[in-house]
Amino acid sequence: MAYLTLADISKNFNKNPAVEHFNLDVEKGKLVSFLGPSGCGKTTTLRMIAGFETPDSGVIELDGEDISNIPPNKRNIGMVFQSYALFPNMTVLDNICFGLRMHKMLKNQIVPKAREVLDLVRLSDTANRYPNQLSGGQQQRIALARALAIEPRVLLLDEPLSALDAEVRVVLRGEIRRIQTNLKITTIYVTHDQEEALSISDRVVVMNKAHIEQVGTPQEIYREPKTKFVATFIGTANEFHGSVCGKDSVKSAEFLIKTNNASLFADGDEVFALVRPEKIDVYSYKPENIDGNVLEGLVDTITFRGAETRLGIDIGEKVITADVPGKDVFSYGQRVWVAFDSNACQVLK
């Protein structure tokens, strides 16, 4: 049974569609992220859930109740903003107490409750400081605590980490996930960072140009992208553009790519065959006895990345990206052979 339901939501700004026919069910206690490039409508959808924007059509239901016409201050949905949005005129503790006061909590319970959530984000010692005396990461924890204090029915996070340093980002997203799991709070997390979305979510909603591309677990999104957009937006993929040829291959201008995944398409359909860099093996000799694809090329770029090395291999018409173990050594201009299994090759329209 879905806890939060968005049914056929659409929204236009000045006749430009921001969100079109958005359908989503979110289960109670799960963390769902909206992932997509800027301008894809993810933040607009979030703001409609919060009540800052009104959908042009469609219904938003929370726990069986239609909340589309409830003003934002009556929805009891917590939100964390990209820019933290802490009130600069209040101390950390006052910021957290604010929501409790607005919800008419009994006076003697407000401060203990605020201290409790402050403990939760591990910043008890900052209670009497002002927001501008804190680091960005600390401010965002306080913003999280402030949103959690009112025990919201849903927690919304709008690119909460994008203003922070890489290191802080990784720590804080772990923290958010820990707290979310402990409190079992239903959470929507908006981000444009695929790594963040994959690492934190129960489910990921990939959006592009105002519509949903795919909904699935992080594993599904990465391993079985349903559209070319998803495949290329999440991680890196080598694409071969061509047409389906028989049940087991895609024929492009230069290559015939063997694949086990073409059966969904009819002969002659225009498709993309996609291969992830880590699925590609690189040999300095022509490999024998390989059942799959083998292509010959020259090493064009070498990017050392620690545990692995990313190679760009020029195979004539295009450059293939391949990840090889960091201990393997290649040199520029070296003749190599790339090989990948026919199973590793995804075929998409």
């Binding site: 919060a50 934002p72 201050n73 820019s83 949005a85 009130f87 929501g99």
Partner: peptide, 10 residues
Amino acid sequence: DWREAAQNLG
């Protein structure tokens, strides 16, 4: 977002 945060908090 101050206004929205305030609204959001009730």
